[in-house]
Design a protein around this nucleic acid. Structure first.
Lengths: 233, 233
DNA sequence: CTACTTTTGTGCTGCATAACACGGTTCTAT
DNA sequence: ATAGAACCGTGTTATGCAGCACAAAAGTAG
């Protein structure tokens, strides 16, 4: 996915773009702090129980945040797209990670030490507000997700996941194919179901002409109906 | 529960106690902003879709934050105990409430306009850090909860709820009775199950001498075993 | 090219849990 | 005091979904 190498200059621009809230001195400080990491497809970025040290900014690629539950079953908590920040929650909460992160596509990630972040937060209120806002949004999403995953039926959960993926990663040029190719297993882990049921329900949706599937490519055909299925559960 | 009326002075002390991070001018400012509301048992505090205006601080009583899902089923997202703050997430995220709140016991709540809060946050970094930390903790709890509620079996979920209630509200003088008396329905909504299954599982636990039940009074007898049940799912 | 692993797909079985029904009990209100 | 509502408890039935097992296909490595 990432064909060209990112130069330091480009990375700084990427980050600076989001960090508009910083003054020149703070930007300069930050530019001497970060490092760049590349991750292969399916490579783990951090694990549960690890002590958090860095805030991460996904520059390119796609990342899943997940949690291993009982009996080896894994639940995808959220998906990260460029340019989003992640990995900072646990540090702020003064805990170890309760989730794990892995690249679902080759990814380039900018790592910024949390010590640098907390220093900046303590001297820049707009940056503090950025985190307050981001955490508030994420918490709202998590609350909604809890109810969706527990109360909706299997069709509703899968429909919701498909719509979520569309909202997160968008569509390809044809305006209907999801711009992310997940394995059936990941799709299942995202939707709280077994792989077999993800496969089955997916082909049911295809038979009903709600979607079209070609390997991992998923085309959304009748989005309205998907929304309805997602809503009624 | 609240026998004596709280004087303004006492309330200020309550709040000031938590708001140690404020300087004198800020405390003074805050002391002219808040109002006090009393809620009867089962009274609604705010509803889903409402626009948030106040941050609330529970001074006494107990509050549940919940969300109505499909088919009238309700899911309790979290419980609030004195002295905890709630109701601010949606305002920070610039959304309407996605949850509702109700008193499960007669409660006294201090209401502080969010406009006052944001002003204080913008001029006091320690207060900003308070919110960052609090939101980070809540998000971690929400993530863990999602997996627990979706993957654990009914016994594991109920055991977990009982332990959660103990951690949140503590025990009575006998060191074993939960200091909160919930209806079977609330217990079910907390644990993501139907009321009948909450009743059934509860009496199973009683037969197995893990707990003792007397109406809404629940005595924890074998906490270790409850922990084990909660852990293995 | 060939062997091996991972992913996808399908059918069958069983179980956990929801749904419903109904009777008893305890609160609440007037 | 009495009626009505809310809550509690239990049995029965129904069903959605997990849990295999197994086969085909696709991707990967040597």
């Amino acid at each position: 996915m990432v064909k060209k190498e990112l130069t330091d200059k480009e990375i700084i621009e990427y980050i600076s773009d989001v960090w508009q809230v910083l003054d020149e001195g703070q930007k300069d400080f930050l530019n001497h702090q970060f490092t760049i990491q590349r991750y292969k497809k399916n490579e783990t970025i951090y694990c549960e129980e690890e002590t958090p040290e860095y805030m991460m900014c996904l520059l390119s690629g796609k990342v899943k945040i997940y949690k291993d539950g009982v009996g080896g079953r894994s639940q995808i908590i959220r998906m990260i797209k460029p340019v989003e920040y992640f990995g900072y929650r646990a540090y702020f909460a003064q805990e170890n990670y309760v989730t794990a992160a892995a690249a679902v596509e080759p990814s380039v990630i900018c790592m910024i030490p949390m010590t640098a972040i907390t220093r900046l937060v303590s001297e820049n209120n707009r940056l503090a507000m950025f985190f307050i806002r981001q955490l508030s949004i994420d918490l709202g999403v998590a609350d909604a997700r809890t109810v969706n995953l527990t109360q909706k039926h299997i069709r509703g959960r899968l429909a919701e996941s498909l719509l979520f993926l569309k909202d997160s990663y968008g569509l390809e040029e044809d305006q209907s194919t999801l711009s992310i190719y997940l394995s059936r297993e990941d799709l299942a882990n995202l939707s709280n179901m077994t792989t077999s049921n993800a496969i089955r329900t997916l082909s049911n949706f295809a038979n009903e002409k709600l979607i079209a599937i070609d390997g991992r490519k998923i085309k959304l055909i009748d989005e309205e109906k998907l929304k309805k299925i997602s809503k009624i559960g």
